[in-house]
Design a protein around this nucleic acid. Structure first.
Length: 259
DNA sequence: AATACTGTTACGGT
DNA sequence: AACCGTAACAGTAT
């Protein structure tokens, strides 16, 4: 369940380790969820040099020097591993072996993880980009009257925010997750814009300092409200939670409800 | 041993 | 029609 900050760090670490290397062999499992036939994917990537690894929404993009792009979405349980020589991982989805013997493996116990060749970029605005600003939020929040948390989680609108960081962002912005998107005053939209950027960037820094080489798993102990170990927010308010659609939403009364 | 947890999508209902 | 909530998917950890 990595979200944007986790994936951002993973992509940087993978870029550092793997860019400039040539793919010798690409293998996918028979259960891998692909958008093209396995043979097409294999032929499109093998022999190519990896130019760049970066993050788009909750996907990792691998850009190759022939112009092909391979995207991996880890869904809930996808995990990445680097290996040097031999490896014996269970439930491998995809295995990318480079010419010098290093390789990258993605395994997933659920088999839900997705691998795409040249994905159509249907993701929403990147939260860390310049397009994410007051005007974008003002315009799009006004178009719908859905709960603000739902808006933040809609990957077609904004790419990369998940359940945990949506709670964190809304706490920092002082907006109740149940506020209606079209009822949020301009001042709070400004706070939301700021909270999106600072919360995600701060998380990225925390993750790097806790585990500089991380490419899988998650560091979450610094979260201030979406954290089952915490009883009180930094402001001293009791942390409450409700289950929405099987997912926990954590919040406090410090957050204003606009209805 | 029962339950919580996680992202996405499909689906039935409003 | 556009939107909503929920189940399903699977396994691990508590």
């Amino acid at each position: 369940m990595p979200e944007l900050p986790d994936l951002q760090v993973f992509s940087k670490n993978l870029h550092k380790k793997l860019s400039g290397k040539k793919v010798e062999k690409l293998t996918t499992s028979s259960t891998a969820k692909l958008n093209v036939p396995a043979k097409t994917l294999k032929e499109s990537i093998e022999g190519q040099v990896l130019d760049k690894v970066h993050r788009v929404g909750k996907r990792l993009y691998f850009d190759f020097n022939n112009g092909n792009v391979m995207a991996w979405h880890l869904l809930l349980k996808g995990e990445l591993f680097l290996y040097d020589k031999t490896h014996a991982y269970d439930r491998i989805v995809i295995d990318m072996l480079f010419a010098n013997g290093t390789g990258l493996v993605m395994k997933d116990v659920t088999t839900w993880a997705k691998v795409e060749l040249n994905p159509s970029d249907s993701d929403g605005v990147d939260p860390l980009s310049k397009e994410m600003n007051f005007n974008f939020l003002k315009e799009n929040l006004g178009k719908t009257k859905t709960a603000i948390k739902k808006f933040l989680l809609d990957q077609d609108k904004i790419g990369g925010i998940g359940n945990a960081y949506a709670d964190e962002i809304l706490w920092h912005a002082g907006i109740s997750p149940f506020s209606l998107s079209n009822k949020i005053p301009d001042e709070k939209i400004k706070a939301l814009d700021k909270a999106i950027k600072t919360t995600l960037q701060n998380a990225e820094k925390k993750i790097i300092s806790a585990n500089p080489d991380i490419i899988t798993g998650e560091v979450r102990d610094f979260l201030v409200v979406h954290n089952h170990k915490k009883k009180l927010s930094p402001g001293g308010a009791a942390i409450q939670f409700v289950v929405v659609g099987g997912r926990k939403t954590y919040f406090t009364e410090e957050q204003e409800l606009y209805k």
